[in-house]
């Protein structure tokens, strides 16, 4: 399946991936509203230890620990590949957060839910990839 990969050598830690991820997951899809009013959480983390940085999103593992650990069935591995998150089933136990070896799942503390990369299923290319100013994120098939 196609996955998002970070090219760490050209990631410049601007974190615009997070900005556009949040915007993409907002109701308004408006960058200013999304951040200043909706307070949407980005579905990714930018790991940073200067000079190195890179964005981490859900890896959509072939054998996902998060799915195994989910107590409500909110996380499932789809046949197409992505790990799918059904928010209405999530009770905010955050077991998945602990289980994820990549630290790619965010706690939505206010709402007692999680926030996780859905590969912007409705778009042809995830928002973080499309908006990276330095092409430090790619969305591609690389085999397993």
């Amino acid at each position: 399946m196609k996955r998002i990969y970070a090219i760490e050598s050209v990631c410049m830690n601007c974190q615009l991936c997070a900005v556009f991820c949040a915007t993409g997951h907002s109701r308004s899809k408006d960058i200013i509203k999304a951040h200043n009013r909706e307070k949407v959480l980005p579905r990714l983390f930018v790991e940073e230890k200067r000079p190195v940085s890179f964005a981490v999103q859900c890896r959509h593992c072939d054998e996902p620990f998060c799915v195994q650990s989910c107590i409500t069935g909110a996380l499932t591995k789809s046949l197409e590949g992505p790990v799918v998150y059904a928010e209405e089933k999530c009770v905010g136990c955050w077991t998945c957060v602990a289980a994820c070896p990549y630290g790619a799942i965010r706690r939505d503390v206010d709402r007692k839910k999680i926030a996780k990369c859905d590969l912007c299923a409705e778009l042809t290319e995830p928002a973080c990839v499309a908006n990276c100013p330095n092409q430090a994120l790619v969305y591609e098939e690389r085999g397993s």
Partner: peptide, 10 residues
């Protein structure tokens, strides 16, 4: 300004 901090980091 959305306080994303791009300016700070760049």
């Amino acid at each position: 300004c959305i306080r994303c901090g791009v300016c700070v980091r760049q």
